[in-house]
């Protein structure tokens, strides 16, 4: 028997289309709403400040802040006082002094001790000056006559810290105790010239992670001391990076 019902129902396809529109609206609303949420971005970039080796042009000439605000700050330290002049020896002939006088003998002993102390101080000051000039010749920042545009006194430690931080981001390995010894050559401008694999445990994943760490750390390399080419070997292990 024929029934007269089907045409009275709403079309199912219309409902599905409406549902699709509803979902699309929901997704668009969520996408719009997330703009107002705080960014849950990846790990924020860490900036390092090397407080030990702050770059300064010349510590003796004062910092740029001091130069601009010279009225507000204390004046730079006065130059070193001149070394104490050695006392002139007595022109009086010893023979003229009474040899038998015990009081004058004691004074003589005292004077001699004083002269010896002055001579020692003079010798120490001279030695100190020699050392200072020797260090200044090396041209390290933070030290007298440093250029201020170079890395700190321990460039290897500086590289080590940068490599260690970068390696923390990229480390991955497949074998149990992998290691890689990598020789880095850095030119006078702080640019990585070449990397050479010295030793490896043949863990390709680990080697790749080391190379990625070096690439990641490369932009943070500063020129080596004295703008001379630097070459050093670093040993990478899962525990971290070591200097060789």
């Amino acid at each position: 028997m024929q029934r007269a019902t089907p045409s009275r129902e709403p079309r199912f396809a219309v409902s599905i289309t409406l549902s699709l529109l509803l979902h699309a609206t929901l997704v668009a609303a969520l996408y719009w709403w997330q703009q107002f949420l705080p960014q849950m971005g990846p790990v924020q970039t860490t900036y390092y400040v090397d407080v030990v080796n702050l770059p300064v042009a010349d510590p003796r000439s004062g910092s740029p802040v001091q130069a601009e605000n010279s009225a507000d700050v204390a004046p730079p330290p006065s130059p070193e006082p001149p070394a104490m002049a050695a006392p002139q020896p007595q022109s009086r002939p010893v023979a003229r002094q009474p040899a038998t006088n015990t009081e004058s003998s004691a004074a003589f002993q005292q004077r001699m001790a004083k002269l010896q102390g002055v001579a020692d101080a003079k010798r120490q000051a001279q030695r100190l000056e020699e050392l200072r000039s020797k260090v200044a010749a090396a041209g390290r920042s933070g030290m007298p006559r440093g250029t201020g545009s170079e890395a700190g006194s321990d460039y290897t430690a500086y590289l080590h810290s940068r490599l260690k931080d970068a390696f923390r981001e990229t480390i991955s390995y497949n074998t149990k105790a992998p290691f890689v010894a990598m020789r880095l050559t850095i030119d006078g401008n702080g640019k990585l010239l070449r990397t050479r694999l010295e030793k490896s445990s043949n863990d390709k994943v680990f080697e790749l992670s080391v190379r990625r760490a070096i690439s990641l750390a490369e932009p943070s390399f500063t020129p080596p001391p004295g703008r001379s080419q630097y070459e050093g070997v670093f040993v990478f292990r899962p525990e971290g990076v070591a200097q060789q």
Partner: peptide, 21 residues
């Protein structure tokens, strides 16, 4: 799951209208 959700919401709307009518 998104497909399930789309179809089930389509059915919900369809049935709501059908039963209400």
């Amino acid at each position: 799951l998104i497909l399930f959700s789309v179809v089930s919401w389509g059915i919900i709307m369809f049935k709501m209208y059908q039963i209400h009518k």
